[in-house]
Design a protein around this nucleic acid. Sequence first.
DNA 1: TGATTAGTGCGCATTTGTGCGTATTTGCGT
DNA 2: ACGCAAATACGCACAAATGCGCACTAATCA
Lengths: 248, 248
Amino acid sequence: MLAEDRLNTIVSMVQQAGSVTVPELADALGVTASTIRRDLQTLDRAHRIAKVHGGATSLERAHVTRDLTISERSDLHNDDKERICARAAALVEPESFVYIDSGSTTLRLIEHLPHLESVTYVTDSVLHAQHLAVRGMRTVVLGGELKPETEALVGPDALATLDRYNFNCGFWGSNGVAAEQGFTTPDIEEAQVKRISMRHTAKRFVISDASKFGMVAPVKFADFRDATIITAGEVPAKYQSMDNVITV
Amino acid sequence: MLAEDRLNTIVSMVQQAGSVTVPELADALGVTASTIRRDLQTLDRAHRIAKVHGGATSLERAHVTRDLTISERSDLHNDDKERICARAAALVEPESFVYIDSGSTTLRLIEHLPHLESVTYVTDSVLHAQHLAVRGMRTVVLGGELKPETEALVGPDALATLDRYNFNCGFWGSNGVAAEQGFTTPDIEEAQVKRISMRHTAKRFVISDASKFGMVAPVKFADFRDATIITAGEVPAKYQSMDNVITV
DNA sequence: TGATTAGTGCGCATTTGTGCGTATTTGCGT
DNA sequence: ACGCAAATACGCACAAATGCGCACTAATCA
């Protein structure tokens, strides 16, 4: 087996299961733990997965705190995320001006977005912008400083550009979703962009899988009531009854 | 069996299987591993497959480790371009604010840029920005609408951002270089960005191989005297004596 | 016919990838 | 706060893969 293939397999396994341990990978691929660790290191550097103590997790699950263990591992299903994205994408109306936040969940969303001629998509992520442009969407990118880890744009230029726009609707990811602490993210600068972009959007949607409920990341960017949450899977009972939570 | 046929067979095999090893190919085609390696090298340069350690994979699968380095070796002016870029990159001084125009020549330039801590690079190309960020440079992206073909940002947002900046030096590509018609490019919107960015830059450099001299594209973005040209190869005699032309 | 050139195989030095042992760090329970 | 077990990083050895120079062959052309 080619080393390259092994790397691809690891990525698929991580994506599908949400998280995998080093021994699991070593066993499945017939190589030693040392090799797996080296592979995880390369993949982490390439931003394909997130390396954590004990193994690896998919990127979206990694950012709650900078270092989480494999201890809690609710195997999140790809199906959930697909359904969430499909539901969210259906909310985009013709003739509208739509904001797309950076992050891996919203990246998945792009695949489901309608191909309406009259819609303009605005994003703070160069990666998302490329995907939108490739699919033939009318795409606008915020300016600003490029953060290498997330490929997101931050800083005064990004905020200044946002101040000139008003969106019909927008979609955000969130590392933490909690009734009291609201929507939270690990990065201060990115939080600022999220906050300002939300302020300029009429219909605000946070797309998030069930595992984010109850999680709290360092920086808050919106109150829990500020957006409608589109989610799927085993949402804690406390949140199920709330009228701004849509479970698909 | 013709060498050309062998190359085609390799491509089909890679496409079909996703990935193959060198011994597999050598065995299947009845040639030695050396020949296969040479073939893979050829096919990789032609961007028909991706050569990896131990064999080859199809291009779609290749994005795991595939570096962001540009390998346009098929280019005839390769040596020239390398020399031009090396010379241009040496012009970047510490503590400076540098503008990098979009285009394939400037993309090549990025590989040669010095890793000075204090330098900030600003670009209108999301592709260039990614390359800069990957290399650990402090990178700023103009906002604006993303043109899918060139991955360049254009429109009022790009221009508005430029109006807030003043660069120490900047590097532009140009489709046409002529004494009378100046620097020219095919796209109106990109010409605008080039024009305004030049207006905000103290030391302006156009990097261009010899083949562009005498060419004229539809839209002019600067006078011939507005920038110093860094070039190489067989520059027409008329231009060689000009004091804003540096031949390396 | 003789010279030239592209393509191929082979040997060798170098680079790259892998596994293993050991020292160090990390996480977790007491 | 502390200690223990697991996980990790690091250095080393070995094997595989690679790149390069050289020799040989076949086709092309003067």
